[in-house]
Amino acid sequence: MSILVTGFDAGHDQVNASAVLTASLRDDLPQPLYPLRSQLHFAILPLSASDLREAVLVQIAVCQPRFCVFTGQARGRNKVHLERLATNLRDFDSPDVAGSQSRGERIEPDGPAAYWSTLPGQEAMIEQLNRQGIPAALSNHAGNHLCNQLLYQVLHWAQQNGSGMACGLVHIPPLPIQVRHQWPETPFMLLEMSRAALAQILLVLVQQTGASAS
């Protein structure tokens, strides 16, 4: 059993909360995740619409995951959100690192309008996080930028290839340093809370599916 956890590169910004979180888990795994350390694989993906699909498929080929847990930062949100849906739409309100700013374009020309997340146990994950004092909720909209594109493209690939791999997206608030230097009015979450949230999500995932943690 293998789990791929990803974040996004900072791109033109100095910090991306999802990259910081992913690197932090990779380099300093929380103690509750020690039983899973040989099954966890971490990757930072490019903020590039044209390069994203190939970059994540390379990681999938390397570790052959049973689950993909993608993370992305969500400016303006004050909770950890698990996304229910990925839509077949690029409508960027800001350009990617290559300067591309798609407006109203399909991600996959012949793909369906949307895919449901296939990550199991999301309701149980939300309940567990809130019980532990971590604000969390389900979300019906992953945005129309690269987080949504990533989830849609991987779900589409899994559908087209008959893969049993399950995928989901976790949106986290920005970090305090981003509020100080970039977005003074936006909500934020401390890195330690984001780390605890991802650890619990991964633990519930394993428990809900009966996957081995050894």
Rank of each mutant, 00 (worst) to 15 (best):
L89H: 08
Q149H: 06
C167M: 11
A199H: 06
R37L: 00
I44N: 11
A199D: 04
I107P: 09
R195H: 08
A113K: 10
D51K: 14
R75M: 01
P95S: 02
F42R: 11
T22N: 06
V97F: 07
T87L: 10
S100Q: 15
L45E: 02
P135M: 10
P109I: 05
G99L: 01
W116M: 03
A86M: 13
C147I: 02
Q39M: 06
A136M: 06
R66Q: 08
A49N: 15
Q178T: 07
D9C: 06
I177A: 04
I172G: 12
P46Y: 01
A17G: 15
R37I: 00
A196D: 14
Q178H: 02
Q39S: 09
D51T: 15
L169N: 09
L21K: 07
S212I: 08
S139Y: 14
R180L: 01
L40K: 03
Y115A: 01
P35D: 08
I177E: 03
I60N: 02
S212K: 06
R103V: 11
E54Q: 12
D51Q: 14
L155V: 00
S117N: 13
R75W: 04
D91I: 14
H171N: 13
T22R: 00
I201R: 12
V170F: 08
W157P: 12
H181E: 04
L138N: 15
V56G: 01
Q208P: 15
P176A: 13
C63I: 08
N88P: 09
R26M: 00
A17L: 11
P135F: 07
T118E: 07
A10L: 01
T87P: 12
A197R: 05
A136S: 14
E127D: 15
L155S: 06
E108N: 14
P46W: 03
A113T: 12
P95I: 02
R37T: 06
S214N: 15
P120E: 11
S194D: 12
Y152E: 09
L36D: 09
G121I: 01
A23G: 10
I60R: 00
A197V: 08
G76S: 13
F8P: 15
H181T: 14
N144V: 13
L57M: 15
S212F: 04
D91K: 14
F188H: 14
F70E: 04
S24M: 03
L202R: 04
N148A: 07
P174D: 07
Q59E: 13
I172P: 10
M125T: 13
E108R: 15
A142V: 04
S48K: 07
L138W: 09
Q208E: 11
I126N: 05
L169P: 11
D91N: 15
E185A: 06
L202K: 01
A43F: 04
T186E: 04
L190E: 14
G99A: 03
C63N: 10
V62A: 03
H81S: 02
A23Y: 03
N140E: 06
E123R: 11
P95D: 00
Q122G: 00
W157F: 01
H145L: 00
M193N: 13
L47W: 05
